[in-house]
Design a protein around this nucleic acid. Sequence first.
DNA 1: CCTCGCTTCCGGCTCTACCGGAACGGTTAT
DNA 2: ATAACCGTTCCGGTAGAGCCGGAAGCGAGG
Lengths: 255, 255
Amino acid sequence: MAAETGSAPVGATQTTIRVIEALRELDAAGVSAVADHIDVPTSTAFDHLRTLEQNEFVRREGDEYVLSSQFLEIGGYCRNNDHLYRTAEPELQKMANETGEHANLMIEEFGRGVFYAKAKGRETFRLDTHIGKRVNLQTTSAGKAILAELPDDRVEEIVDDHGLPGITEHTITDRADLFEELDTVREQGFATDTEERLKGVHCVGAALTDDDGDPIGAVSVSGPKNGMQDERFFDDIPELVLRTANVIEVNMKYQ
Amino acid sequence: MAAETGSAPVGATQTTIRVIEALRELDAAGVSAVADHIDVPTSTAFDHLRTLEQNEFVRREGDEYVLSSQFLEIGGYCRNNDHLYRTAEPELQKMANETGEHANLMIEEFGRGVFYAKAKGRETFRLDTHIGKRVNLQTTSAGKAILAELPDDRVEEIVDDHGLPGITEHTITDRADLFEELDTVREQGFATDTEERLKGVHCVGAALTDDDGDPIGAVSVSGPKNGMQDERFFDDIPELVLRTANVIEVNMKYQ
DNA sequence: CCTCGCTTCCGGCTCTACCGGAACGGTTAT
DNA sequence: ATAACCGTTCCGGTAGAGCCGGAAGCGAGG
């Protein structure tokens, strides 16, 4: 989360958000645990928890507070009304069925990649990527596909904001390397990820662009490294991913 | 949403929440549209929108504000850490595969049913149930299964709070009918829904209970009315749903 | 160039968010 | 039993901040 320590216009809301963050980090916690965590008096934490509870953002579980499913509800509602999601979701399913691998839809927000939707293939190895999860764009194929469609100065800005932290030994951590990689992506038309975010996982991603050529997201397929190699990884899967991306782009316009 | 008009301890937070609700209802809106909608000066709406934006709960799209995927992120994160979800999710998948229909996991929160997870079967007719969607418990099979495991006075309380509004012509709208139905559910061990929330859709649901016998959720299968009839609807599917519920209950304890 | 609608900024007044402290309630130890 | 202790809940005063009106930017359109 941003944790802008700069003064927010509405300080009380800022405090409430800190309470939410605390509950998220603590999973379940009592009033005083929350108060300690964000360094406010218990009475203050209590006021905010109660306000959140009244609005059903927080629920009591025994003698502790937990975040409710209200967040999921709002997020799910917005996503369900989203034209991109509605258009892409069925195509994701198809892609997952055809490949047997996981298919993902990513969007960019605040300079980071959001796993916006996923479809499971036959291989149901457990992914760490919960819905909505945010990652640095350069660590995924879909993210790199998006970056490749953004103007250079915007990429610079994103790198300035979020850096290039190494997640695995294969993650791109150098700025020049990144731009070189983005050149390759633009040449190929698709992006790859060879264990750059998760050991043992390979991905192929392609950007979705609007009429102006601006990226509105990206789709990708991810699977175990062993099954994702050679022609399948460099030809078959990319072709399918690109075709799917194309179908989604077209359907975005005419329905 | 609750819309507790009673005074919240932290009024500023209450206002922020109203801004969020407004954005949700308006989909995308400018400062003044939000201000009008919740009847505050534009400058106030602006302050709150800016605070939300700084914390990445709201994003600018052109010259309008929209809710960001932050809600999905928080909700998805919590769900992913949830023992019930982690345990039930793979079983849902299996159930969807075996039946070819949609499989759902519902939990109860604030007296309403939350569609907490779903797995798609082969029949991919478009459901209106986005993830996190809240419904009145008595309108779904999973919800009735949960109600059947709650003490009568709690059921009374829930009905008092949320009423028994009719959604389709088959929805239970009478209190006595509801209790009669819950008796049947307890006898059978599972609950059914014959077009009580959606025309043309039948469901079968079974509750998940903890060691104390309190319901922690319910699983259900829903499909088109035509395919969900006779032995399949009254025997085969119920058996599978009950078996799945049982597997989840056991796995909850030993892993 | 002027108008109009919207967003953004600014500063003062008043209200309220915040806090300390006290009461309450449940649990454990003596 | 009873006391001690922990966390939660309640309460009231104060000073600091949220709210608001008004004005300044800023585009779009005539």
